[in-house]
Computed example of a mutant assay.
Amino acid sequence: MKIKEFKTWDEQVAKLIEHGCKDIKSNEYAIDILQKVNYYRLTAYFLPFRDRETQKYDSSKVSLEKIYGISCFDAELRLLIFKYLEDIELYFRTQVAYHHGNKYGALAYKEATAFNKFHKHNEFLEDIEKELCHRQKSPVYKHHQRKYDGEFPIWVLVEFFTFGMTSKFFADSPIDIQQDIAKNVGIKSTQVRTYLEVAVVLRNYCAHYNR
């Protein structure tokens, strides 16, 4: 299997020029950017400006300064979105814990009967165990191991949920719980399910610095 050879900063700049990015202030300017943003990552921002036939960047439309500016804007946009996604995630964690705990009790999440027919209970329990394993050094985890024999009420357990787990917990909850939560935000439960799924994907994009 052929692997691409390592390129020095200067060679990376030469590669950008070879591919069509000829508008570069200086070699030093380019290297300064490449030392901050990995070459492979930066070149992804050139893709919308690449000619389909030649596979070269359209030199009339791109400059290194412009592409770096788009990259910086993308970073700022991710940070802005992430702030609101955090609010959404924490809100729905609180809601599913409150409504599920109120109707079924502190530990009812351990029983498949506390969910709807679409719920995959074994997978859910495996996800919980995996997250608890990752949090064994947490004061909350240690406290409940010591004082409550390792039992975590749903309103505590949700603090260990990923956003994806929160979204699935909502979608797998009985319809009356979904409707009560949806009523609080003024939309249908089906819309909440869809929006949460989209928010989870978006959150993962932001968390992993995707374009």
Rank of each mutant, 00 (worst) to 15 (best):
E111H: 09
I177D: 00
D32Y: 06
G69K: 15
L42M: 06
R93W: 01
N38P: 04
I67A: 03
K137Y: 11
K7I: 01
I24Y: 06
V158W: 00
I24T: 05
M165D: 01
D127L: 12
A171R: 04
F49T: 02
E28P: 02
I154A: 05
N184Y: 10
D10Q: 14
F73N: 07
C133N: 13
E89T: 07
A114T: 05
S138V: 03
L132H: 08
D23F: 09
Q136K: 14
E129K: 12
I3Q: 13
D149C: 06
H144G: 01
D10C: 12
R193T: 09
A171M: 09
D58M: 07
V62F: 12
K183G: 04
S26T: 11
M1F: 07
Q55T: 09
K183D: 09
I128N: 11
I128W: 06
I177F: 04
E89F: 02
N116D: 15
G150W: 02
D74L: 02
S60Q: 13
Y98G: 00
F170Q: 02
W155S: 01
K188S: 14
R41S: 05
I154F: 12
S167C: 11
Y68K: 02
T162V: 07
W155A: 00
R211D: 05
L42K: 00
Q35I: 01
I24M: 08
D180E: 14
F152L: 03
N184F: 03
N27R: 14
E197L: 08
V156T: 11
Y39H: 03
D176N: 14
L34Y: 09
L80W: 13
E131L: 08
Y205L: 10
E123D: 15
S189V: 08
D176C: 07
Y104L: 03
Y98H: 10
L132N: 05
G186D: 08
R146N: 10
P139M: 08
K103G: 06
C72I: 09
G20N: 01
N210F: 13
Y39G: 04
A207S: 14
Y57F: 11
I187P: 08
T43W: 07
K142F: 09
Y45E: 05
R41W: 05
K120M: 10
N184R: 15
L125Y: 05
E123S: 13
F46V: 00
